[in-house]
């Protein structure tokens, strides 16, 4: 630990304090939320109205501007949970557990969104709402992994034990995700020649990919806002027996 600069170490310890998190993030939220709204608004309007239609799929390809960010966040959310799990198990940082609790339903929501938009997109592209395409199948399994984490947390009554149990599950899961993904991909190549894949359009021009980039950034910020909100609530609930939460309860108008 002595190689870590003093300031950084202090920041790390302060970050571990739920109270510090609650008080500091309050001022971040308007900025993050505003930036998210702006990016998503520009990206979506651009993507829906100004980007040219795809030469193969026509206008149905515009679903890409929400499908890709959702699919990306679905995976990023699980990885974030596993990182929090490691921090919780190694450094016993309570805040990491609270973040992990907040991420689970949000990540599951984005996973559901990725599946739903992918399935809606599939209808005009493949002619059916559901095919056992490699990517869809792995996202479905990812959704099951999220549901497992949420179920486990709900089943264990003591929050500390629930947090550590979920941390172990998230770490085991995150090691499995690439294995699941590659095995499913490989299984697909065995069973059917790869149909044309939806997201790898051959070299999109900037007028098509810039809005996608904006939306990916915007959804990332949106995800951050939502996780911070969830974590703040979790901080209050878990720290409800401390003096500062009691004082805050009496001070703040709901």
């Amino acid at each position: 630990m002595k190689y870590i600069p003093d300031g950084l170490r202090r920041l790390w310890h302060r970050m571990g304090s739920p109270r510090w998190f609650y008080e500091t993030t309050a001022s971040w939220l308007p900025w993050l939320g505003g930036a998210a709204a702006l990016l998503i608004a520009v990206g979506t309007v651009w993507g829906l109205a100004f980007a040219p239609p795809d030469y193969l799929q026509g206008d149905s390809f515009r679903i890409i501007y929400i499908h890709v960010p959702a699919a990306y966040l679905a995976q990023a959310g699980y990885i974030l949970m596993a990182v929090c799990g490691v921090i919780l198990l190694v450094w016993r940082m309570k805040l990491a557990d609270m973040v992990m609790t907040a991420v689970a339903p949000i990540g599951a929501a984005f996973t559901f969104l990725a599946l739903a938009t992918g399935s809606i997109w599939g209808k005009p592209t493949w002619g059916t709402y559901w095919i056992w395409d490699a990517r869809i199948t792995s996202v479905l399994i990812l959704l099951f992994l999220y549901l497992g984490i949420i179920g486990l947390r709900r089943a264990i009554e003591r929050p500390e034990a629930a947090g550590r149990a979920c941390a172990i599950l998230a770490i085991v899961g995150v090691i499995n995700i690439p294995i699941i993904k590659y095995s499913v991909d490989w299984w697909m190549t065995l069973h059917q020649p790869a149909t044309f894949s939806v997201t790898s359009a051959p070299a999109m021009p900037p007028i098509m990919w810039v809005p996608l980039l904006l939306n990916v950034l915007g959804f990332n910020l949106l995800f951050a806002v939502s996780v911070i909100q969830g974590t703040r609530t979790e901080v209050l609930v878990r720290e409800r027996r401390t003096r500062w939460v009691s004082e805050l309860c009496l001070r703040e108008r709901a």
């Binding site: 399994i141 099951f144 497992g148 089943a155 085991v172």
Partner: peptide
């Protein structure tokens, strides 16, 4: 091991491990 102390073990256990069995 994760569900050993729980009353609602069975169904939860299936949900936890079946996705991991896929590969």
């Amino acid at each position: 091991a994760l569900t050993v102390g729980l009353r609602t073990g069975g169904v939860l256990l299936a949900l936890l491990v079946l996705p991991l069995f896929v590969p």
